[in-house]
C-alpha cells in the first residue's frame, strides 16, 4: 500500500482529551463535517483516523457516533444506524466495496490533534 499526500498546512482541531479513547468526535474542518477517531491498541499505542461524518447509507451525519473495533485485521467504525462497517484507513465499506467515504490526514502534535487540508489517496 502506498500513500501519496501533498504536504499542506496542518490545522489544530482540538485537544487530545476532547476525544476519549476508542471513541470518535465530529469536527468542523473546511466547512465539512469530519469524524475523528482515537483508537488505542492493546500495546498502549494510539492511532488517529479521520473520515467523513456523513453516512452514505443513512444520509445523516452520524459516523462519529459509531463503535470502533477491528474486523479481519482492519480497524473499523460501525455505522450507528444501519451497522455497516467502514475501514478507517481507506474509507471503504466492508459490506459494499463500491461505497467509500473520504479519509483525511490527521495527527497528534503534543496534545493537539491536527488535520491537513491535503486529501489522501490510498492505493
Amino acid at each position: 500500500m502506498t500513500t501519496n499526500m501533498t504536504n499542506k498546512q496542518w490545522v489544530a482541531i482540538c485537544n487530545i482529551d476532547d476525544i476519549l479513547p476508542n471513541m470518535g468526535r465530529c469536527a468542523l474542518f473546511n466547512n465539512k463535517q469530519v469524524a475523528i477517531f482515537r483508537v488505542l491498541d492493546s500495546a498502549g499505542g494510539e492511532s488517529f483516523y479521520a473520515i467523513d461524518n456523513y453516512c452514505p447509507f443513512s444520509h445523516a451525519n452520524t459516523l462519529s457516533r459509531g463503535i470502533t473495533g477491528n474486523i479481519d485485521g482492519k480497524t473499523v467504525i460501525s455505522s450507528p444506524l444501519y451497522k455497516q462497517h467502514f475501514d478507517l484507513l481507506t474509507g471503504i465499506c466492508l459490506e459494499d466495496k463500491n461505497v467509500k467515504v473520504n479519509t483525511y490526514p490527521v495527527r497528534l502534535d503534543g496534545h493537539a490533534v491536527l488535520m491537513s487540508e491535503a486529501t489522501i489517496n490510498v492505493s
Partner: peptide, 12 residues
C-alpha cells in the same frame, strides 16, 4: 492474542 480491539458485537 493481543491484537483484537473488539467490535460492535462484543463491545455492547
Amino acid at each position: 492474542s493481543g491484537t483484537g480491539l473488539g467490535c460492535d458485537i462484543c463491545k455492547p
